[in-house]
Design a protein around this nucleic acid. Structure first.
Lengths: 234, 234
DNA sequence: TAGATTGTTAATCGATTAACAATC
DNA sequence: TAGATTGTTAATCGATTAACAATC
């Protein structure tokens, strides 16, 4: 059993980041199909709906370990399980959310995160008027209990939704409390030990892509009929 | 002037998406420097702080049109302007936000978006208890006024923070109202005409990357000291 | 001046896409 | 069976990284 070379367990469960980012889209699409029984779906179908090419979809899905049937495609439910399993979304992971403001409330309310393995068991804040209350059914605790509770409850994920200038201090508390991963919604650049996973939500990156596209369509006169009056000599 | 071949105006102001996504990080770093006068910054400095390689930073910055000085680097303020200008973040663009819930409130409160050219001038909702009130200083209006106001106020950007199942209907209203860009925070896959820019915030993608990394560190026994008891024969 | 840094060209790397045999 | 679809290998594409002359 030592050094087990089991073919079925994909030890090297690494996938390119672009693939990882597409997997939730596939899952969302599959959920939307609302099929039952042993319905199948092909890469052509998925690609068509999501504006991708079938080969890419096939390669992405292969990363999760699913095996399809030629001519039929993939069994829908098995495929959903395969994606969820690959992402670790089938077994919930306990998380703390720090910052019970508007953004924190929004994250707590995202039902799809809960169904995707993010189990936020408590929120933390420094605002005494919030401490002791519940937000979206989750209790808000005092920030000074964070490190101790993190350690005792073996919390895996910390979600940072507080003002950016507290972010590093809170991160340090979580790290001391033995956190495994940090999902950072602030603009702060965080320093964490190598063994802690850090993912930055980077809303500004998304807005930058939008801004740039918008700017080019606005500046490119060929994009649509010119907004300026065409001068016609009469 | 027709067909102007002006070298200074970079007509083909296209940059790779990965570059676009990094630009806000550079800007954030530069703002954090809090320098004054004609302070300069080098790619080596920026790369060191952001965990990138200098060549990549140099190429990214070159996309924005900035020209540096050998041995000195780039003038900090000119560089910030160059990035902001490239993204169109220097002149504010009027936007509507649809869905004045927790997420909408969070976006309205993100001061950095306002300073980055996103000028949300009104919010819309169907909840009559919210209509007429102000959220973060922005008035909440009835959804049925959306299309008409969008057209009359020549709104450029629509920010979607309402429940996913309304998203396509709201998008259609905005499109009819002449919107140029849509920033979608819902999980809905939206259909828009070619001339409308669509950017999906995709929080789930970010969470998928985190989940996958976390899953591999948890499953990889080499990542840290084994959590299982090592059996020692005595 | 010497040397750090830029701008740019070439090499590398990795993801996407195409091609095609295998298969149900 | 015929043909759509899979899995996989090869070709392409584009971003990253390396190399290096120019320069202040």
């Amino acid at each position: 059993m030592v050094n087990g070379d089991n073919k079925t367990s994909d030890r090297s469960n690494i996938a390119p980041v672009p693939t990882l980012r597409r997997l939730p889209r596939y899952l969302e699409y599959l959920k939307g199909l609302r099929v039952h029984g042993d319905a199948h779906v092909s890469c052509t179908q998925i690609a068509g709906a999501l504006d991708l090419v079938p080969t890419q979809v096939r390669k992405d899905l292969a990363c999760t370990g699913i095996v399809g049937k030629p001519k039929k495609g993939y069994p829908v439910f098995a495929l959903m399980s395969s994606i969820e399993n690959f992402l670790g979304w089938n077994d919930p992971r306990d998380a703390f959310l720090i910052g019970a403001g508007a953004l924190g409330t929004a994250i707590l309310g995202y039902e799809s995160f809960r169904s995707n393995g993010l189990n936020i068991v408590a929120a933390f804040d420094t605002d005494t008027s919030k401490i002791g209350t519940k937000v979206r059914g989750v209790e808000v605790l005092a920030l000074d209990k964070l490190e101790d509770l993190c350690r005792r409850m073996k919390i895996l994920i910390g979600v940072l939704t507080m003002p950016a200038h507290y972010a590093q201090a809170v991160t340090d508390m979580l790290v001391r409390g033995g956190i495994k991963a940090i999902w950072n919604f602030t603009t702060a650049r965080l320093v964490v030990p190598d063994e802690v996973v850090l993912e930055n939500a980077q809303l500004a990156s998304s807005f930058a892509v939008l801004s740039s596209k918008l700017r080019s369509t606005m500046h490119d006169p060929l994009e649509e009929e010119s907004s300026e009056e065409v001068f016609v000599s009469n």
